[in-house]
């Protein structure tokens, strides 16, 4: 049994807690013993990307404190937030303390803490790929002539975390064929608060992404879209719903949980946006 700390991210916590519960079950079925550091809030990436370095640093320091109680691996339900902690925190904290006129030793200490906590962070599929053993409670039966899913790899997971193959591998192991759309390396347009401050460009990107997704989905008879990043999914889902063309969008954890329970992937896919 490996103990892990679960980092659900603020978006999963607030907008799709069911993905958090799904991840919990998926990890536990593979022998993980999950601890949820209850003080966790947000990694601060929204602030950081918008240029509010000090604000991001406040959140980063809180995040580190929340996760320092144990030395367990930290499983993140977002490739982007994992990348923030692993690759941005160390410099951010050092620079912020220097910018605030703090002393050098303090800056070095926070940088070291950030590096130490960063080494423990794994995005869900990264952790699963290296976790020993397959699901204990349920075996994924073959998906048969199961319909496939479209997989969207978020930009930070691709280029900052550099975790490009893990999620498709994990999905394949669970018997879910996934396909990446044309121009898969193009951003969906979410970009944190960029989606709010530049809605027109952000939406043009979402529309371009949907066009590629729909073309691929038609070609391979895919029934839904999945991603390890809920930010991208909420943005794409919200656009599709507003356009009156909803399409099931599931977090990676939700897909794996369904398969663990032996449910065919196409069964009762939620179209969240139509109630």
């Amino acid at each position: 049994m490996e103990a892990v700390s679960l980092f659900v991210t603020c978006l999963v916590d607030m907008f799709r807690p069911e993905a958090g519960r799904a991840a919990l079950r998926v990890i536990e079925r593979r022998g993980g013993q999950v601890n949820f550091p209850v003080d966790q809030t947000c990694c601060g990436q929204f602030s950081y990307n918008a240029g509010y370095q000090h604000e991001a640093a406040l959140l980063a320091r809180h995040w580190i404190e929340a996760f320092e109680a144990t030395r367990d691996p930290i499983v993140a339900l977002s490739g982007s937030c994992a990348a923030m902690v692993v690759h941005i925190y160390p410099e951010l904290l050092k620079e912020d303390i220097e910018a605030q006129g703090g002393d050098e030793r303090d800056a070095a200490r926070w940088q070291a803490r950030a590096l130490a906590v960063g080494q423990r962070v794994r995005e869900l599929s990264q952790w699963l790929l290296h976790a020993d053993g397959s699901p204990s409670s349920a075996q994924s039966p073959p998906n048969g002539d199961a319909p496939s899913l479209i997989y969207h790899l978020g930009c930070h997971m691709r280029r900052v975390l550099r975790a490009t193959t893990e999620a498709p591998s994990i999905l394949a192991q669970s018997g879910v064929p996934v396909h990446e759309p044309a121009d898969d390396d193009q951003c969906c347009g979410f970009g944190g608060t960029y989606s709010m401050t530049e809605p027109m460009v952000s939406t043009a990107l979402a529309d371009a992404k949907w066009q590629c997704i729909q073309e691929k989905a038609k070609e391979v008879s895919a029934v839904g879209l999945t991603s390890a990043d809920l930010g991208c999914l909420l943005h794409l889902e919200g656009r599709a719903v507003r356009q009156g063309t909803p399409f099931p969008c599931l977090h990676l954890a939700e897909v794996l949980d369904r398969r663990d329970q032996g449910r065919p992937i196409g069964e009762n896919l939620p179209l969240r946006g139509l109630s």
Binding site: M14, P17, E198, P199, T203, G273, S275
Partner: peptide, 30 residues
């Protein structure tokens, strides 16, 4: 669904919807 919002969030709702904050967050459930 949320169809509009205040402040910074207003931009989002020009072109997209958003689910409301869950009745029970993951943290509350835990």
């Amino acid at each position: 669904l949320l169809q509009s919002g205040p402040g910074l969030a207003r931009g989002w709702f020009k072109t997209r919807t958003m689910p409301p904050i869950a009745e029970e967050t993951f943290g509350e459930w835990w």
